[in-house]
C-alpha cells in the first residue's frame, strides 16, 4: 500500500480551487491543501513538504517554486520540476490545460500520473465553464444594447419594433459589422445628442 500523497494546490480563486480539490479527492485518499495567499508562499511550502504542488501555469508565484525546485541542500527537500521526459503526452496536456506541477524528487511516475490526469481534467472543465459564462454574459449585454437601440429608432423615426430591428440589421450588413456593434454606436450617439 502506497503512503498518502501530500498535495498542495496554489490557487487564489476559491471557485476555481474547489473543483480541482474535488477531482483530486476522487482519485484517492490524499492529503490536500489549498494555498490562496501569495505572501510567505516559500515558507509555507517548506513547512508542509508536499509531494506534489499544482499551480496555474501563468501564476506569477510559479517563479518562487522555481527557486524552491533548485534548493536541494542536505536538509531541504528537493521539489524536482515536473515535465516528465517519459510522458510527453501528459506534459503537453498539462501545458494546454494551463497547469504546471512540481513533484518531489523520486516520486514514481505511476503515482504522479493519476493526480495530473485529474487536475488536467478539472482545469479544462473550469476553463470551459468560464468561457461559457463569459459568452452568456456578452450575449445578455448585447441584447440589452440592441433593445435600447431599437427604442431609440422607434422614437426618433416613429416606426415599430420590427422595422427598427430590420433597419439595424440592414445597416450592419451594409457596414460589414455586427448588429450589436451598430446598436452600440447608435446608443452612444443618441446619448451624446440628447440634451437635458
Amino acid at each position: 500500500m502506497d503512503k498518502r500523497l501530500s498535495i498542495v494546490v496554489i490557487e487564489p480563486d476559491p471557485e476555481r480551487a474547489a473543483p480541482i480539490v474535488d477531482g483530486l479527492r476522487e482519485i484517492g485518499d490524499h492529503e490536500i491543501r489549498i494555498f490562496s495567499e501569495e505572501t510567505g508562499l516559500a515558507r509555507h511550502i517548506a513547512e508542509c513538504r508536499p509531494d506534489i504542488v499544482l499551480i496555474d501555469l501563468a501564476n506569477p508565484s510559479r517563479d518562487i517554486l522555481e527557486e524552491l525546485a533548485l534548493a536541494s541542500g542536505p536538509t531541504e527537500r528537493p521539489v524536482a520540476m515536473f515535465v516528465d521526459r517519459s510522458d510527453e503526452h501528459l506534459t503537453r496536456a498539462a501545458v494546454e490545460a494551463g497547469i504546471s506541477a512540481y513533484v518531489v524528487d523520486g516520486l514514481r511516475p505511476d503515482r504522479i500520473k493519476p493526480v495530473l490526469d485529474a487536475a488536467v481534467a478539472r482545469f479544462h472543465m473550469f476553463q470551459r465553464m468560464r468561457a461559457e459564462l463569459a459568452a452568456t454574459r456578452t450575449a445578455l449585454e448585447e441584447r440589452k444594447v440592441i433593445d435600447r437601440a431599437k427604442a431609440v429608432l422607434m422614437k426618433a423615426r416613429g416606426i415599430d419594433e420590427e422595422a427598427a430591428y430590420a433597419l439595424l440589421r440592414k445597416t450592419a450588413m451594409d457596414q460589414g459589422k455586427r448588429v450589436a456593434e451598430i446598436a452600440q454606436q447608435l446608443v452612444l450617439a443618441a446619448g451624446l445628442l440628447s440634451c437635458r
Binding site: D56, L57, A58, N59, P60, S61, R62, D63, L65, E66, V83, V95, S100
Partner: peptide, 10 residues
C-alpha cells in the same frame, strides 16, 4: 505571461 517559468515552458 504571468511568470518567467511560463514563458520558458510555453
Amino acid at each position: 505571461q504571468g511568470a518567467w517559468a511560463q514563458a520558458r515552458d510555453l
